[in-house]
Design a binder for these strands. Sequence first.
DNA 1: ACTAAGATTCTGTATTGACAGAAAATTCTG
DNA 2: CAGAATTTTCTGTCAATACAGAATCTTAGT
Lengths: 155, 155
Amino acid sequence: MPERYYEEKHFIEDISLYFEQMGIPRMAGRILGVLLIANPPEQSIDDLCEQLQASKSAISTSARLLSEMGLIERAPSPLPRRVYFRFQPGGWIKFMRMYLRMMASLHGIAERGLELLKDEDPTLSERLQEAHDMFSLIEDELPMLLKRIEEKRQI
Amino acid sequence: MPERYYEEKHFIEDISLYFEQMGIPRMAGRILGVLLIANPPEQSIDDLCEQLQASKSAISTSARLLSEMGLIERAPSPLPRRVYFRFQPGGWIKFMRMYLRMMASLHGIAERGLELLKDEDPTLSERLQEAHDMFSLIEDELPMLLKRIEEKRQI
DNA sequence: ACTAAGATTCTGTATTGACAGAAAATTCTG
DNA sequence: CAGAATTTTCTGTCAATACAGAATCTTAGT
């Protein structure tokens, strides 16, 4: 086996481990890994099964998850009745936006905490105020940053 | 039971669910939840056991994890031989910095992917270049943002 | 419409991980 | 420095989850 083969495997496995850390199934990470370096970028379910030595059901389920996350998309199929996937341009930005939404939810929870402490000594609120301030700023600034990246890409 | 009791429980559970989504054990999220709204902010292991109806081992393990993450800290103990925890001021910023580090690791993986594609058609590299550009920008800008937040807090 | 190829969903199983309880280690008092 | 109180680590168990394989549903070609 050529060196390159192992490097690809390693890349795919590292992506999958990263996504596992985020609570996303390993298989989804592996699929993404393949679709990030595959040539051609479009890969059928069977291609993915073979490359990852996994069942169709596992591929199908995890690919759907990645689609919902906006990281991959179905590609126009060269063959009839066959589903092809590829990385979705702009997928990484969508991924970051998902993160932003998650942060926003934590922001909301923090505000509920502040509400709970509103009648107590204000110094008790500091730990939640800190969260509130931080998330507010990030929610103000990060979308702008992402927009800038997006525009840069589209030129 | 007063209304407030349920609101606190709900708050704690929502924090724990959020952290679970991030791949952090539920119990750690619950401990953080308690320490965000507790009065006084310092709570002993036994306090936490009682409030969360959990074993000492579970509290001990998860509290250590939160300490390593920089979200909570051991507090000077009013009683000898007894460990008290509290939310660590600046903890949320540490939390965000942890995120940054995780992103940086993905950044590194993406660059390895680019390396793998360096001899192929440049259009194939776009999906990884996108990641590279995005993470670079975020890694440039977010630390500045966090620093600003930090300085604001310390005034 | 029927049929065949393929994708998706459902069900069972094996693995993983969270937690309780027990054992070991640590810390403080007399 | 002995001993008691408290925390931490270790071990076993239970529940949750990822995946394989089977069953069902979809799609397209005749």
